[in-house]
Design a protein around this nucleic acid. Sequence first.
DNA 1: CCAAAAGTGTTCAGCTTACACCCATGA
DNA 2: TCATGGGTGTAAGCTGAACACTTTTGG
Lengths: 231, 231
Amino acid sequence: MEFIKKYTQAHPHLVAVDCIVFGFDNEDLKILLIKRPIEPIKGQWSLMGGFVQEGESLDEASKRVLYMLTGLTNVYLEQLYTFGDIDRDPVARVISVAYYALIKIKDYDEKIVKNNSAEWFKVSNYPKLIFDHETMVQTAINKLRRKCRTQPIGFELLPEKFTIPQLQSLYEAILMQKLDKRNFRKKILSMNLLDKLSEKDKGNSKKGAYLYKFNKEKYEILTSKGFSFEI
Amino acid sequence: MEFIKKYTQAHPHLVAVDCIVFGFDNEDLKILLIKRPIEPIKGQWSLMGGFVQEGESLDEASKRVLYMLTGLTNVYLEQLYTFGDIDRDPVARVISVAYYALIKIKDYDEKIVKNNSAEWFKVSNYPKLIFDHETMVQTAINKLRRKCRTQPIGFELLPEKFTIPQLQSLYEAILMQKLDKRNFRKKILSMNLLDKLSEKDKGNSKKGAYLYKFNKEKYEILTSKGFSFEI
DNA sequence: CCAAAAGTGTTCAGCTTACACCCATGA
DNA sequence: TCATGGGTGTAAGCTGAACACTTTTGG
């Protein structure tokens, strides 16, 4: 690296990744926060993060951080934005690449989460966070809110099998608005992306609601024919 | 920084910014490319970029790079995505934060552009680029294509005064599709964001077309009342 | 006078929205 | 039997898409 430094006047920087982890508990949209494990400001609420290692890509770093926090792999994880203000971290200059993850809230490993002193908070009411982490969270919520209307990413927050009322309350939680039951059902079913199962989920009512599965193959075929998802 | 390094096992990285500069010549959507001025692979086409300096934020770095290339300040400039694969730059590991700029093509400083051995290329036909710069360009085009439909950013690519046919061909160039003249005019004028001037531009026809200006104040008032731009 | 671009309205189809009642079941 | 959430259809208004002729004027 020395010759590059001399040649280009390049100055190296610490680079971190921070993860905004979303979950849905059939009621509220939530984020997973940890109590900062290291000094300074140890014990304050924060996003889970970590430094990018030598020989590690940004995507790999974000997967590693998410795994350390939740024990999960193979989850929806997407780069959000890179935060690079000089004084964003008062301890040292750190450039942070934020990622957001959508997880099925029942899947995470409780032990690992507990070890990290992590907790779920409603996105409508979470504690004060260190540095610029609140900006990160807001940026992620905005992105999720926009993106869930045009891409079928909401399903990442639900179990594999889910009911239409469940899906509807997910959208209501993300978009922060009530939706019409009949119109919602009509719209989502008219896209032909959901396979109806014969099982019912009686967890939420005596009558029970039919379970559905998102059919990714159908989605990809339709997409390749010019279809676009829209709520 | 030493104590941080030891404490966190953090490894520092070279961080660069690269700029995708868009322009519109009333005909085609274009990008500004340079001939790489340094070894290795000197002379190959590339985006304009530069390393982030000590004490410089990412936004500042991108402004500096854009200024060095075009002589322009105060232009639309937005962070696009951060590219961090290990081997994206075969010379050294460099994490690159890509930005895209929308400039009024008549404004750039020709001398500076010439000094940089820079040239405009159609987005539909540009030369092979170094590293992952073609991915960056495609990502930027996709972003622009999506964003110009829901945010009034197209105006950044036109002179302050422009005609409706000019605006329409801009959208046609970005979206790569013909639009209906009457429907386009109806839609754009119904938003009440344009001020009609009494002057005409006769550059493109004998009859001449009325000039308009985008009224940012009106846009902000409408936006605060829940209006949203949509082409 | 003619070529070339600017400017102008209407109709139809499809989509979005609003809205109210019956069903199934466990307690 | 009753309380609770699940499931269903239709009408009205609005929006998007298709479409052709007149106007202006420089050469």
